[in-house]
C-alpha cells in the first residue's frame, strides 16, 4: 500500500461529492437529537458502529475481490430507506468520476459500464482503493472515517459548532475507528470464503427514518 495514496483518497477535500451530504446529521439536528459537541459524539459513535461498519466491510470485501454486483445487492438489502439508497448510489457515481480521473483502471471502467447511474458508494470505494494500489484495511479505514467525518463537518455548519470541538470528537473516536476497521476486514475475508451473507448488517433505524423525513423537506442545506 501507499500511505500517500491513502491520504489522497481519505482527504475530506477529495472531490467526490461528499460535501453536500450530512450523513443524517441535518435530520438529527432538526429533531433536537444533536445540539452540541457531546451529542455529535454520540451520533457519530452510533453511525460508526452501524452504517460505518457495514460500509467498511463492503469496501474491504470489494478490495479483496468479492463480486461487485453481489456486494451492491447486499448494500441494497442493508439499506431500508429508499432515500439513503439513492444517496449512496449518487455518491458512488461521483466517487467513480473522480477516481477514473485520478486512478484510472480497466476495473473501474467496467464497473462504471455496469452501473452507469452509480453502484453503492462503498462498493465503488473498494474498487477505487484497488486502483490506487491500496489494501482492504485502507478501504475499511476510509469508509469508517467517512461515516463520521461527514456528519462532523456538516454539524459545524448546521449548529455553528466550534470546529475545534467537532474535530476533537473525531479524534476521540480514533480507537473505535481502529476496532471497526479490524472487524470490517475480518468480515471482508469471510465474504470471500463464504459469500456476502457474512457482511455485517448493523442498522440504525433512526438514521433510516430520519433520512426519509429529510428527503421530504422543502428547505434543507444538505442533500441527505
Amino acid at each position: 500500500m501507499s500511505r500517500g495514496a491513502l491520504l489522497v483518497l481519505a482527504d475530506g477535500r477529495f472531490p467526490a461529492g461528499g460535501h453536500a451530504h450530512s450523513g443524517g446529521a441535518e435530520a438529527a439536528v432538526k429533531a433536537g437529537r444533536v445540539t452540541g459537541a457531546a451529542g455529535l459524539g454520540e451520533f457519530c459513535r452510533g453511525r460508526l458502529h452501524t452504517a460505518g461498519l457495514v460500509s467498511a466491510a463492503v469496501a474491504a470485501a470489494a478490495v479483496l475481490g468479492a463480486d461487485p454486483g453481489e456486494l451492491d445487492l447486499a448494500v441494497d438489502a442493508r439499506t431500508p430507506s429508499p432515500a439513503l439508497r439513492v444517496a449512496s448510489r449518487r455518491l458512488g457515481r461521483q466517487l467513480m468520476r473522480a477516481a477514473r480521473a485520478t486512478w484510472p483502471s480497466a476495473e473501474l471502467d467496467a464497473l462504471a459500464r455496469e452501473f452507469p447511474k452509480g453502484a453503492h458508494q462503498p462498493v465503488v470505494l473498494g474498487l477505487v482503493a484497488r486502483s490506487a494500489g491500496l489494501g482492504a484495511e485502507d478501504a475499511a479505514y476510509c469508509a469508517a472515517y467517512e461515516s463520521v467525518s461527514g456528519p462532523a463537518s456538516a454539524t459545524v455548519r448546521l449548529l455553528s459548532l466550534d470546529p475545534f470541538d467537532a474535530t476533537a470528537v473525531l479524534a476521540r473516536l480514533a480507537p473505535e475507528l481502529d476496532l471497526v476497521a479490524d472487524r470490517a476486514v475480518e468480515a471482508g475475508r469471510r465474504v470471500l470464503a463464504e459469500g456476502v451473507d457474512e457482511l455485517p448488517c448493523a442498522a440504525a433505524p433512526l438514521l433510516e427514518i430520519g433520512a426519509e423525513a429529510h428527503a421530504a423537506w422543502a428547505v434543507r442545506l444538505f442533500a441527505s
Binding site: 477535500r13 472531490p15 453536500a20 450530512s22 461521483q94 468520476r97 456538516a154 434543507r220 442545506l221
Partner: peptide
C-alpha cells in the same frame, strides 16, 4: 443540484454533482 450549504464548493472545488 443540492450544494450542502456551500454553493461555491459545488461549482469550483467539487463539481461532481454538477457534472452529473
Amino acid at each position: 443540484v443540492e450544494t450542502g450549504a456551500c454553493p461555491h464548493t459545488a461549482i469550483r472545488d467539487d463539481i461532481s454533482a454538477n457534472l452529473e
